[in-house]
């Protein structure tokens, strides 16, 4: 009885999570523009997608933005985590407190505050403003991920390196960074995912010359249905699945050495 209930709960939640996605993917192959009824298999929405350079450009922009923002956030966040781990400095508690507050700040609050900043400073909205905004909301995630891993290590490892004559930078490069590498990779992947998933912040701080995918899609699906969007979502999903599987395989191959 209990076992059956358990299976039912798990199946129910997974159905809830995947049914809409399955419907989304299925309708990318449906030969009907307005009706939701099944009219047969077609690939014409994929052809329509290929003929829609704006949508493809927006998708490429989003990926470029996500890679850039995740990389910058990982570099600054890793250095920040090392600083929090290694040093006792004035304002250390406020710095980590601020990071936790930032972690929980609703996107819309961050979005309008950055919009205010960019308008006051006269920063034109585009790729630069998007990178700044995405780095800002990814930063606490990279710091927390890397810091969590560092705080599990024996601090004497770094002290030993220092005693043996390594400078701070060398100790970081040769001891801390290799140890923290899995967390750094995890932080980068998390940032990449957060950046791709973002709608709210991008909505406020992007400009016409650098349109990202969520905004392009937003104008298309607000009212009505667009099968091209289904086709694009299917392709992106398959792509991210392939990337994650590939990264898993790479990590697994590296582990034995």
């Amino acid at each position: 009885m209990i076992a059956a209930l358990r299976v039912a709960v798990v199946a129910g939640v997974l159905l809830f999570l995947y049914l809409p996605l399955a419907v989304l993917f299925a309708f990318s192959f449906n030969d009907s523009k307005y009706s939701m009824a099944w009219k047969g298999f077609t690939l014409k929405w994929y052809e329509a997608l290929a003929a829609n350079p704006q949508l493809v450009d927006a998708a490429i922009h989003s990926v470029v933005l996500a890679v850039t923002a995740a990389t910058v956030a990982t570099v600054i966040g890793t250095l920040g985590a090392v600083a929090l781990y290694r040093y006792r400095f004035r304002g250390r508690a406020s710095l980590s407190g601020l990071l936790y507050v930032l972690l929980l700040t609703p996107d819309i609050v961050l979005a309008i505050s950055l919009l205010c900043l960019f308008v006051v400073l006269g920063v034109s909205l585009g790729f630069g403003s998007l990178v700044i905004a995405h780095v800002t909301f990814c930063l606490p995630f990279t710091v927390v991920t890397v810091y969590a891993r560092l705080s599990g290590f024996d601090p004497r490892l770094v002290e030993a390196a220092r005693d043996l004559g390594a400078g701070e930078f060398t100790a970081m490069r040769r001891v801390l960074l290799p140890l923290a590498l899995p967390a750094i990779v995890a932080g980068w992947l998390l940032s990449f995912t957060l950046s791709l998933d973002d709608v709210v912040v991008s909505y406020f701080v992007s400009g016409p010359e650098y349109e990202v995918l969520p905004l392009r899609i937003y104008s298309m699906v607000r009212l009505g249905f667009k099968p091209e969007v289904n086709a694009l979502a299917t392709l992106l999903f398959v792509l991210s699945l392939a990337i994650v599987l590939a990264s898993q395989l790479l990590l697994r191959q590296r582990r034995p050495s």
Binding site: V23, L24, D197, P214, A233, S240
Partner: peptide
């Protein structure tokens, strides 16, 4: 975690496909 790889706007749109008058 896997559903996160699809942008949340697209996921909201997927819910729309399920709930529409002539939807799933």
């Amino acid at each position: 975690i896997v559903p996160f790889w699809t942008n949340s706007l697209i996921r909201a749109y997927a819910v729309k496909l399920v709930l529409a008058t002539n939807g799933a």
